[in-house]
């Protein structure tokens, strides 16, 4: 029996044109979907479950009821059951920093006792990118970040995560990490599947357990955050592009004048 816990997050995707309201983007310009990196983490976990025997894949999300549809899509792709942590205290929080997420996920890890935890490398919306490693530290697991290849057989046969990590400059690092471990999963590690119609039907019968902070032995203090979101704005784009308009003759004359002013070319 082996258990893989996958942390998944529903992220907001912003439309091309949008407006900022207060410290956020107006809701009408947002669409919600599974975080891209988490899709790869789910696929990796499901592939392990399909390769080995008696392996349970559990997903955990911190999020409101709205994200059940996104969770259900992960269940349709092969996750066995899901946990969704939500609470009035969470609903009242504007911003959940890495420390707060770590406290919550730590409680889930302690309750579930997984052998492996997969997180996406980062979240597509707030780009914190630290939750996985912070969680490993909190629960005392080994860890590897930005994993782009995992030897599934070694996980099953030797209880070791033999991973490739993508480093700067195209260098690939190969590391062995003993289980239990947290791996933050990079895009491209696999090819995430589409949920089939059969999977979607089966997912309707899978459990999404809602947990409040108290169910995890936590209280509102757990979501207190030292990080404040103070402002959100669109930076002015500084563009030096000049577009000449008119006929070829006119635009050529304008270009010649600019070149002359800049001191380019011979008189």
């Amino acid at each position: 029996m082996m258990k893989v816990l996958v942390t998944v997050k529903e992220v907001a995707e912003v439309e091309e044109d949008f407006e900022i309201e207060g410290t956020g983007i107006a809701d009408r310009y947002l669409e919600y979907d599974l975080n891209e990196w988490d899709d790869y983490a789910v696929e990796e976990a499901v592939q392990i479950a399909e390769t080995g025997d008696d392996i349970e894949v559990v997903s955990v999300t911190i999020g409101p009821e709205r994200c059940e549809e996104t969770i259900r899509m992960a269940l349709a792709k092969g996750v066995d059951r899901a946990i969704r942590v939500w609470d009035d205290a969470l609903a009242e929080t504007d911003l959940l920093d890495v420390a707060a997420k770590t406290r919550i996920l730590r409680a889930v890890v302690e309750a579930e006792e997984p052998d492996l935890v997969f997180t996406g490398v980062q979240a597509g919306d707030d780009s914190f990118g630290a939750t996985g490693v912070s969680l490993a530290d909190a629960v005392g697991f080994e860890w590897a970040a930005v994993v782009n290849d995992l030897d599934v057989d070694a996980v099953l046969d030797e209880s070791v995560a033999r991973v490739h990590r993508e480093l700067e400059g195209g260098v690939d690092e190969v590391t062995e990490v003993d289980l239990p471990a947290v791996l933050t999963i990079q895009t491209g590690i696999n090819e995430p599947r589409y949920a089939s119609l059969r999977g979607i039907r089966q997912a309707q019968r899978k459990e999404i357990a809602e947990k409040h902070l108290a169910d995890l032995g936590l209280d509102a203090e757990a979501v207190e955050t030292d990080v404040r979101l103070t402002e959100m704005y669109e930076p002015e784009s500084e563009s030096d592009a000049t577009i000449f308009e008119g006929s070829a003759e006119e635009t050529a004359a304008q270009l010649a004048q600019v070149l002359r002013e800049k001191g380019v070319g011979a008189e």
Partner: peptide, 14 residues
């Protein structure tokens, strides 16, 4: 229903 929306979404993505 949720199942119908998921089927629409997965088909659209594919």
């Amino acid at each position: 229903g949720e199942e119908e929306r998921l089927i629409r979404d997965t088909a659209r993505r594919f």
